[in-house]
């Protein structure tokens, strides 16, 4: 009886020490959570989540101060990716933060632009090129479609438009969707 208790205690101690040693010695220096969350965010820097950019939002999520369903540009797929990083069940996008929509791009109506540079200052990725008193233009490759330049414009010359599809960016529809939506087109009478 006593020997059994003694043996078990000894074993527990030995393994406990071993585990403790291993946890110190073989600690895996994983990516900090905020980095991994930031890597999943779309980097639109739109602020719809209520934070000034994607990185602050990622940091807030990592601290547990923000919910992970507040990023409309990332959409449901983005929420699922965030949930996977956080190890929790996905949930739908919080409608308070906006709705998911197709990728957008800002277009400056150069007939109207007065060159006030307000949008230049608003752009989080410096994607607007222009100077004072001279009309501005959006570098379409750099624009994230965040829409932050729309509000500051005093003459409302900036609009968000869906990114046009090209042969290179066109995507085949899922057969699951097209099977439901598309009936065989009726053949016109010859």
């Amino acid at each position: 009886m006593l020997s059994a208790v003694f043996a078990l205690t000894l074993l527990a101690l030995t393994f406990g020490l071993l585990l403790g040693f291993a946890s110190v010695q073989f600690r895996v220096e994983g990516d900090p959570l905020a980095d991994r969350l930031d890597a999943v965010l779309p980097q639109t820097q739109c602020g719809q989540c209520g934070f000034p950019g994607c990185r602050p939002y990622a940091e807030a999520m990592a601290r547990g101060e923000a919910d992970f369903n507040r990023c409309p540009p990332g959409g449901q797929a983005g929420i699922e990716a965030l949930a996977a990083v956080l190890g929790v069940e996905p949930k739908p996008l919080d409608p308070e933060n906006g709705v998911e929509q197709a990728a957008m791009i800002a277009i400056v109506d150069e007939n109207v632009c007065i060159g006030c540079t307000l949008c230049l200052q608003a752009c989080p990725v410096d994607a607007i090129l222009g100077s004072a008193k001279h009309m501005h233009t959006v570098i379409s490759q750099e624009c994230t479609g965040c829409g932050l330049c729309v509000a500051p414009c005093p003459v409302d010359c900036i609009t968000l438009q869906p990114v046009p599809a090209t042969l290179a960016t066109w995507k085949w529809p899922s057969p699951l969707i097209s099977a439901n939506a598309q009936q065989e087109p009726a053949r016109a009478a010859a």
Binding site: E184, P185, A186, R187, A188, A190
Partner: peptide, 8 residues
């Protein structure tokens, strides 16, 4: 003339 567009 309008034809059905199925995939290959």
């Amino acid at each position: 003339m309008q034809f059905a567009t199925t995939t290959s």
